[in-house]
Write a protein that binds this DNA or RNA. Sequence first.
DNA 1: TATATAAGTTAGACTAATCTAACAAATAGA
DNA 2: TCTATTTGTTAGATTAGTCTAACTTATATA
Lengths: 218, 218
Amino acid sequence: MNSQTKENYLKSIYFLSKKNKEISLTELSDLMNVSKPTANNMIKKLTLIGWVSYEKYKPILLTDKGEKEASLIVRKHRLSEIFLSKIMGFGWEEVHDIAEDMEHLKSEKLFDRMNELLGFPKVDPHGSPIPNKSGEIYEESYINFSKIEHGNNVRLCALENSSKELLVYLNNKNIRLGTELFIKHIEPFDNSVVVNYDGYKSVTLSYEVIKNFLVEKI
Amino acid sequence: MNSQTKENYLKSIYFLSKKNKEISLTELSDLMNVSKPTANNMIKKLTLIGWVSYEKYKPILLTDKGEKEASLIVRKHRLSEIFLSKIMGFGWEEVHDIAEDMEHLKSEKLFDRMNELLGFPKVDPHGSPIPNKSGEIYEESYINFSKIEHGNNVRLCALENSSKELLVYLNNKNIRLGTELFIKHIEPFDNSVVVNYDGYKSVTLSYEVIKNFLVEKI
DNA sequence: TATATAAGTTAGACTAATCTAACAAATAGA
DNA sequence: TCTATTTGTTAGATTAGTCTAACTTATATA
């Protein structure tokens, strides 16, 4: 299996390639805090795995396979951070270090469950997107509910920034990802909306709530 | 630092010593699924760390230091299991494997927070006790609230078996570990009790609730 | 464009964790 | 109590990840 060590190298390469596309051994060895021969040695192994392509004296290039693999680690990291912050009540400044460790946890189910409990967040609280299980970062063109006009009906697809309180609130209202909302009225004064959905009629949702809804028209 | 590998050996030794006190190399190598020379080699290293004491051809003995260290790993494992089950909604059969991985997470704060969110459980759902942060397994003589008679006042010290629902309930009632409960009345019909605590007067707690309370008299 | 400096490579060594093959010690049963 | 079997040890090898020292290639600028 792929060791934590290799995963950490891959992640470093991934972040370096976001800025530069081409990465030098020195940049990598600096970021990883290892000697250049160590980084060189590791790059040869990562080439064998197929995560990077490398030729002597040339820059390091991340392959598609490597990029996908790295995205999955980033996904685990970001889900962990949000989970630690929203569900476990850690301060945002505390979560990074713990997530560095958690991102290497092997259980896929664990992260799927976190994702679910968090309401499938599209982005972490800093606005960084969460890659999906295939390692793809969808730049879905969901629309913020607050931009929708009367007469449209929408499906809730994602939450912009889902606090624990919001999730509990939506749970109580029986609104979940996929719920179809039929807009009866938009109140201009406070931007609240009145909707029908499932068995519920004329439910008022405040702007505080709906500004977090990423929806698509149906 | 102590590697996950060493921690796993230590845990195996810990569980073997619960049954036998003296452990043979063969038992260990069998449990760890490694060859005898590998186990032998590792035992020498664990002796150096001070977790076990060992002399050629003699049985393996766990030291106090080793026992403490092992308890801390068990603590992390059991807290993880309860957390996965109670807070994350995993089936009890799914949690073990994930906890095997989580028990090696380094953050102390993470497990302290789990402990807190779970209401400081004394035992896991199978009745196995949770070692404390010092690695001690206290066999505290807390009394189950249902055994307390009228006229006594008590402090809530632990929960026997704390479901998520119970924790949410107690949270709403503002009852937490350490809360002092003054018994006004015990209803013989349904074993419910009426208590005063903090700012609250004459609050009725059902038997369903108080049967989970481990308390001490004050 | 020649060369000083930066970047990258090779060689050789070390620790951790593992193996197999061969041998030695302990023990259990005839 | 003698020996066959089980148990444990030694020796030597391998892979992963790391290092330093010495060397080579690339590059930047004088």
